[in-house]
């Protein structure tokens, strides 16, 4: 029963993977029908390419700040919902609605609301004296992109952490109550250690996903202004489909895969521990 799915999975994952390694060793620009062997030129060229490194830097900022905000807000809201005695389900349902929104629509909405002529957010910002075009200014474009990601994905952290909270054993909490621990002590020494594995799982899933999608950037800033929102994923799309330098794009793609493979390995290790 396993054979057909494994064969098809091999075709859709292994073949493209090896094709990408092959492409990264070819000169795949001038005549895409007949790529010629290019040794390690693509590899050397990305290592020397300052935009490549700049894109990783923007990616790091996007990922680290985005994940930190999502983790703090998501866990905080999970704790708040956990302590609500009634109507928890309704609140969770409303809070998780952004998860179903296509990233492209999130981007469209962000662009619409921040539009300096019609946008409602832009209008509120103008009231408090901020008249800049948020998505068109280097210092504010990245924070705006991060906020769109936070809006869409914080609920994921919340529902994962909430599931962890709801499956906590009751005894340690009762024991802490008997010992007269206050809420902060309980949170610090009982609750957080009990849900730490769940929080790590949530973080790993989010970090793989945040590298996975480029839709929001594609529809809002297209990497600009002045490359300030050019993450590595967007740079790959640009090198491949705008500059048509497929060989170099393949080398970039390979380095992206390495990072997500590392995250996947960690996830599997934690997953296997939880299954036992």
């Amino acid at each position: 029963m396993l054979t057909p799915s494994i064969v098809i999975l091999a075709v859709i994952s292994m073949v493209p993977f090896f094709y990408m390694i092959y492409a990264s060793l070819m000169n795949y620009t001038v005549n895409p029908d007949q790529p010629t062997f290019y040794q390690l030129h693509n590899w050397v060229s990305i290592l020397r390419d300052s935009t490549y490194w700049h894109s990783w830097e923007r990616t790091a900022i996007f990922v680290i700040i985005g994940l930190a905000v999502e983790l703090l807000v998501g866990t905080g809201i999970a704790l708040a919902i956990y302590h609500i005695p009634k109507g928890r389900n309704l609140i969770v349902t409303l809070w998780m609605l952004p998860l179903f929104v296509a990233p492209i629509v999130t981007g469209l909405l962000g662009r619409f609301l921040l539009n300096t002529t019609y946008g409602m957010y832009a209008w509120f910002l103008q009231l408090v004296g901020i008249k800049t075009d948020i998505l068109g200014t280097t210092s504010t474009a990245m924070p705006a992109i991060i906020l769109m990601d936070v809006w869409e994905w914080t609920p994921l952290i919340t529902i994962i952490v909430l599931a962890g909270l709801q499956s906590m054993p009751e005894e340690p909490l009762e024991a802490a109550d008997v010992d007269g621990a206050n809420y902060w002590a309980k949170l610090r020494y009982v609750i957080l250690p009990l849900v730490s594995r769940t929080i790590v799982v949530a973080l790993l899933i989010r970090s793989m996903d945040i590298l996975r999608y480029v839709d929001t950037i594609l529809i809002t800033t297209e990497g600009g202004p002045a490359d300030s929102t050019k993450t590595i994923g967007y740079y790959l799309v640009q090198v491949a489909f705008q500059f048509q330098d497929f060989g170099r794009a393949a080398a970039i793609g390979f380095t992206m895969l390495i990072v997500s493979i590392f995250l996947g390995r960690t996830f599997i290790r934690i997953f296997a521990r939880g299954e036992q």
Binding site: I12, S13, M20, Y28, R212, V214, G233, A240, F254, M256
Partner: peptide, 26 residues
Amino acid sequence: ESDLSFWVISTRMAPIPAVMLPLYLM
């Protein structure tokens, strides 16, 4: 088994641009 499961997960979680490129060429 862990290698197999790792393979499945990494196929699902691979960055879309990195999957799109070889598929496009093929």
